[in-house]
Every structure is written in structure tokens, then in C-alpha cells.
Design a protein around this nucleic acid. Sequence first.
DNA 1: ATGCCTCAGCTCCTGAGA
Length: 259
Amino acid sequence: MKLATWNVNSLNVRLPHVLDWLESHTVEEAIDVLVLQETKLTDDKFPAQAFIDKGYEVAYFGQKTYNGVAIISRHPMTGVQKNIPGFEDEMARVISAQVLGVQVIGAYFPNGQSPESDKFAYKMRWLEALTQWVKSLSEQPSPIALMGDYNITWDDLDVWDPVELAGTIHCTLEERAHFKNLIDLGLFDAFRQIHPEEKKFSWWDYREAAFRRNKGLRIDHILLSDSLKNDVLGCEIDKEPRKKERPSDHAPVWVKIKR
DNA sequence: ATGCCTCAGCTCCTGAGA
């Protein structure tokens, strides 16, 4: 079973990229579940049929201009839920469902802008609520796949220039403490499990030719329940779509598990 | 240079992203 996450920065612009990426995999290596972030589409505008035509089911939760998340799945989805239960939020950031016995969560974590901003305080509140919810889910028998754009680097290995960017947004101790709280619920970082020392990024700024110069961050992550720790067959960040014309600033990340 | 690029929208500038 292959699970993937991708912040597409407008599905309206990136739909051809997403369809191409899904088609670029052979039947044996097909993506079973893809979670998308920053679709920036209200639900009436979601291009559901394009995915249905390729044999996928879709669940989506969006809004105008900002945010918006979706799950694209080759297998039936049950128990679709939108946002974090009990957390009042005007922004469409989370969608979850059960697929093949896995509790899939696709999440677009708040950016936070800067540590002094109101948006950072909101990010902290949001992370608190997410952690409480994931904690309650972790008491259920299904393994969890918490995937998405975390907007947090786990440590300095995830940062192109950790000295220059120390303490800036995505790299603060507060954000990383929240990341650790999620790990402490009994989850592990699938990419690091397979690549303990590799300095690889999932996002590069559009400016300053950042992609060409590999000035990036690893902020898109897949956390899996510890019960799957010995079942990870591979996990990669696919830079190919970032090389295309009009790319998203993020690359997709996938994990293959024995299931 | 919080300046550089990209996207959406109450669109020819502005806010936000990360």
C-alpha cells in the first residue's frame, strides 16, 4: 500500500501535474491514497470527476482563496471527517478517513508567519488541538498515517541553512516541541526511518532560484503508528514534479507499507 | 530588502505563503 502527501498550491493550476504524477506510476507501484493541501477551491469547484475517471474516490473540504484539503483514494473510504473535532476553525485544514483499516489524516498545518505574530499563537493552539485528537485516535486499534504539510522542520537536518534560519518560522523550539509531542503519542517519521542521515527537502521558495540552488526545507511529513515500524518498504520525496513548468513549491512525499 | 516568485480575487494591486 502506497500513501502520499502533496501541497499543490492551487489544485486549479496543478490538476494536470497531479494527474500526470498519479499516471507516472505503474499499476504495481500505484499511489493508493494521496492527500492534498492548499487546493484553494470551494467544494462546488473541486474537480472530482477527473479523479473518478482514473478510478479514484475523492473526499474534499475546501474554501475560497486559502487552505483546502482532499483525499484521493483507490480504495473505499469510510468515516470521512473534516477539521479537528471540537476545535472551532474557520479554515479548511484537515480531512480524515479510514482506508484499508488505516486511519488516514491529511493536514495543512498553519504556517505561523513569524514567532511574534497572532498567526503563530493560532498555530500553537491548532497544534495543541491536533495532538489531543490524534492522542484519542491512537487509543483506537487502527494504525494512523498523519500526512501533510506540517510547516515544521523536525531538526537542523531538515534545513538548508540551520544557522541563518535558527529560531525563524518552521524552525523554532516551540514548533519542534509540538512535533515531538506527536512523535511521543507513538508515531514515527517514515522518511527518517528509511533515511536517517539524508539531507533532503520537500519545499523550496519560488524566489532566489531556491530549487536550483537546493535552498529548501523538509516540512512535508508522513508520521505512522509505531505498530507499522517494521512494515515500511520505502519512503521518498519525489523532486520530479518540482522540475516541471509552473510547479508547486512543494514536492510530493510517498511511503510504501506492507499492507 | 519582510524587496526576489506565485496564486487568488471585491483583479492592474494586495495579502499570504514559507
